[in-house]
Design a protein around this nucleic acid. Sequence first.
DNA 1: TCGAAAAATGAAATCGGTTTCAGAGTGGGC
DNA 2: GCCCACTCTGAAACCGATTTCATTTTTCGA
Lengths: 360, 360
Amino acid sequence: MKDREGRGSELKQAIRPIKMSTITDVAEEAGVSRATVSRVLSGSDAPIRPATREKVLAVVAKLGFRPNAVARSLSGKRTFTVGVLVSDIGNPFYAEVIKGVEDAGLPEGYNLFLGNTNFDLDRGTTLIHSLIDRRVDGVIILFSRTSQEWLTTLAGHNIPVTVVDRDPSIPPLESVSINVDFRPGIRAAVEHLVGLGHRRFAHVSGPLDLQTSRRRRDMFMEELAAHGIKPGQIQCEEGDFHIEGGREAARRIFDNNKTWPTAIFAANDLMALGVMGEARARDLRVPQDLSVIGLDDIWPAAHSTPPLTTVAMPRYKIGFQAMSRLMKQLKEAKPGRKTPQEISLATQLVIRESTAPPRR
Amino acid sequence: MKDREGRGSELKQAIRPIKMSTITDVAEEAGVSRATVSRVLSGSDAPIRPATREKVLAVVAKLGFRPNAVARSLSGKRTFTVGVLVSDIGNPFYAEVIKGVEDAGLPEGYNLFLGNTNFDLDRGTTLIHSLIDRRVDGVIILFSRTSQEWLTTLAGHNIPVTVVDRDPSIPPLESVSINVDFRPGIRAAVEHLVGLGHRRFAHVSGPLDLQTSRRRRDMFMEELAAHGIKPGQIQCEEGDFHIEGGREAARRIFDNNKTWPTAIFAANDLMALGVMGEARARDLRVPQDLSVIGLDDIWPAAHSTPPLTTVAMPRYKIGFQAMSRLMKQLKEAKPGRKTPQEISLATQLVIRESTAPPRR
DNA sequence: TCGAAAAATGAAATCGGTTTCAGAGTGGGC
DNA sequence: GCCCACTCTGAAACCGATTTCATTTTTCGA
């Protein structure tokens, strides 16, 4: 917080109109051609006599000249902008990813167009098209739900795309894939739970039409199987990655007359929070009566009651890498089809207070 | 959720390069001049013979022509972009405001540049300059902390700015102000608390160098005074609008040997959450032992334990109005200095479960 | 000191639109 | 049948950079 409420040094700064100078102004003032000014400023490889360079630089400083990014974008091929598509910035998970994206892009001069789809396919399509119209250099898609149509469109326009947590079962259309390796985190979660003595589990999954939901669920089951617990013994309920969906799934689990599970693993933190809410409503104490584990590690998870044990996603890193790789791709020689990049980031278990040994 | 994991109709859609047609292509194909195409497309006031219009439109459809927004921005005066500056998108409050901004802008063809300052003044300055370079049509500043310098710079460049919750004690430099009227919400909160029987209060404020923090605090005290409770009886601790800051302020309040307050009003939800966290750590039950009221009504407030009673800000509306007014300002005849707009949005109390009668 | 190669710079085209200004059709009033 | 006023449309300038290509300077070896 080095910020401050600056008042422009007490003296009531008058708003004096700033005339935007163009490269032509600079050229005339410095007595050189626009081409020369351009070369000095945009680090061209053409050699410039030191005297000339200084002369130009002096005028630039004097006039406070800053090149018009729009004009630059038109003549150059690049706009130094990328579009970031998110289904809901309200979800802190995405917010943190975006921070990573921005931090990686800013130093390189990139600005972000933010697009919020609100889970609306048509809106997403609209956004994609406006991004194309604006000639963004690249697009980062952070959806849990992504339309393949967007990817083909983007690919057709030769716009590099980074997709996070993609469906590995279909061939990649994007140029950079950030895969999330849920294995280490989920394995640790299962070991943690089993170690605590749990034997009866339930899972609240994301929408099952999403590959990532199925992957998380299957991995959970596989790891449990390694400890002798059969998939058939695990009750799975489908959620929607939102709090309410998690809560409803929990309702279904508890309403089920069979013996209740002693531990529930939710496919994301929001749903885990929903599960805890429902547990509380039924006077089930977490973690004494029920252990809950989430996935994501959004900040509210650390401040819930009790603080949530969760499989942490490297949120910031995901964003940072997504942007870095995209820019790398962008920097590479334009010619032709670049080989798709693909990297994997690991998850890790964060143990807090929503897990404990089951009651006897 | 009308979204779906579209696979582009099973047939493995090949990525066929899409050639971007230009207005010249359209003109040639339609046998008219570029000027005519432009007029047809960008709703110029020049009359076009129906036959010509249709001919052009047909070609546009056939070629799938979409005008290059960059070129359009360069020649026209407008870019149809606005910059949104936020100190932290991780805070759901800002996220929801942004949704409002986007929803208002999208139908009018505006896209958003998102800037996250992370409370860093220099970073903010960098962002402001890049936005100017990119010739955004306007800027929306959602800070609690805003540098006046930015505003003068923006004003100097004649870029309309919308400021939310500005400091009314200094003359406006921006063209649109969205004021938040805390009065109704805070009054209702005080009446609620007093009605429950509370007599000993504490307040966790935001950073006191911020006018908005002082305003919230003073209003709380004024309303209490109306019920016969003197400012001197109210313990105030300064926070930082973050969870941890709220928690620390609570620590100070509890560590204070005097009689504890039975109700605490925090200047925002994040700090209220921090207060509840600290209360829990000290085995103080909320609301039995301590009533807590926040301000903002971010979603985690509704899902905390217990759910937080709070003074709700019209978050979405703030964003929507901020953008709407800005666009209105943009639409108005360019000539000269437009009169600054100013609107006020009211707050309102949302009673949940963090408040109850004090123990006897 | 001369000439050729290298270095530095400028003129002009280009990016893809919008807009001004002027010219070409059309139609109507007398 | 003529002239003027509209109604449409096109040519060209312009927005503010970058970049190619050509030209002017320098630099240097012989």
